[in-house]
Design a protein around this nucleic acid. Sequence first.
DNA 1: AGGGCGGTATGACGCCCGTCATGCGCGTTT
DNA 2: AAACGCGCATGACGGGCGTCATACCGCCCT
Lengths: 233, 233
Amino acid sequence: MTSEIKSERITIAVRSLPMFRGLAAEDQRRIAALATLKDFKRGDHLWRAGDPADYLTLIVRGRVKIVRHAEAGDIILEIFGEGEPVGAIAVYNYMPYPASAVCLEPVTLLMLPRRDYFELLDRNPDFARAIIRELTKITVALTRKLEEIRGQRVEARIAQLFLTLAERMGREGKDGVEIPLQLSRQEVADMVGTTVESAIRVLSRWGREGVLITGEGRFVIPSRERLREAAEG
Amino acid sequence: MTSEIKSERITIAVRSLPMFRGLAAEDQRRIAALATLKDFKRGDHLWRAGDPADYLTLIVRGRVKIVRHAEAGDIILEIFGEGEPVGAIAVYNYMPYPASAVCLEPVTLLMLPRRDYFELLDRNPDFARAIIRELTKITVALTRKLEEIRGQRVEARIAQLFLTLAERMGREGKDGVEIPLQLSRQEVADMVGTTVESAIRVLSRWGREGVLITGEGRFVIPSRERLREAAEG
DNA sequence: AGGGCGGTATGACGCCCGTCATGCGCGTTT
DNA sequence: AAACGCGCATGACGGGCGTCATACCGCCCT
């Protein structure tokens, strides 16, 4: 009974993932039979840096941050959302995860054992293309991050961060652009490579000035233009 | 006559490249027939950011830096050497080059038209694996660069840079580890994300203290240990 | 109630490093 | 030779931001 409900959930999940959408119904059924779903809550680790990568992991619901723990503090490399594969590179290359993955919200994962994933790859070469596309995106994003951190002042970097977030996941609300994402000051700092105190100083000042307002699990940008000015410096 | 000599050179070049080594002799012959060689000298641009990527480019001889021109100054993202493909991502994805490529030394390139490259990909799926491997390497390198730039002081970053270079291309000489690579102070600065002046201050002091000596087209590290101390800070 | 904890906020201090200026040596140009 | 450009070197100055300290608030726990 429960397992039937479960398998029903899995089938729906498989169909909803862009990566599997183009597949034949038979392939989709096979994947659903081999894959499992797993739930997490905010703050949970999907894995830690160094763990073995035994499953191909796809996000069905929620968002996840990829974090590297460095001596000088943590660095958030990327935020993945629904439909995206997480840690696909590590799985593909038989390497331990180079970074940790932590949930920013309640998350549901579809997990496919590595062995089955490779079998799928053999029968469906488009998957290699999908991987390459993901890797390209990551490379471009990392390059941009490098440019931003380099030389720019902290305020400009944070402004740039929220402009990017607004572009990626912003919704037009009645008070301006709304970014539905729960990030602590610490996490903002980790994303632009600075300290909590500096992030707090900028964000609390922006709150007073009405440039960017922190709400419950979201940020609001009353005027994109004023944020852009801050980004220019 | 000349063309025979040329085709002879090409055949040798194809055989020397790791990417082609596993191929059947017939495939190697086909590649040699389609590819061309091109020579450059130090300072030449292989291409500039924004140029169309019409050829798969492999380094037969010499080294190349990948540079992004940012407002705050240039950033050297990567240095590629013999046997490595350059800009393979751009070719694969039909996108214009996201960064410029400049020769650090006299360079010889093997260039394969994109059309032929894709044909080769279809007939030989291992190539996709090769691409993914390259992309993975790049991602890891970029991640490391991010960590280094973040938080660390300039002196530590430069020390880290030369430790990495020593690991990648160092040779044991009579005075210590020798890095056979011509880099200006400006280029060192661009690699760690700082200014020329700061790079000069560190390097000239190290020269006086005997931590790292700049020679003709090379650097010498008398004692890895002292450099490591500088990297720790 | 009290105590611990995590996130947020604010002030004071200090120093690294980016910026600007100046000078030197060397090769190339006119 | 003078003029110019380029790479390297060194000094002075100032500010951004990392570091440390303190405090407030809400929440969970025993």
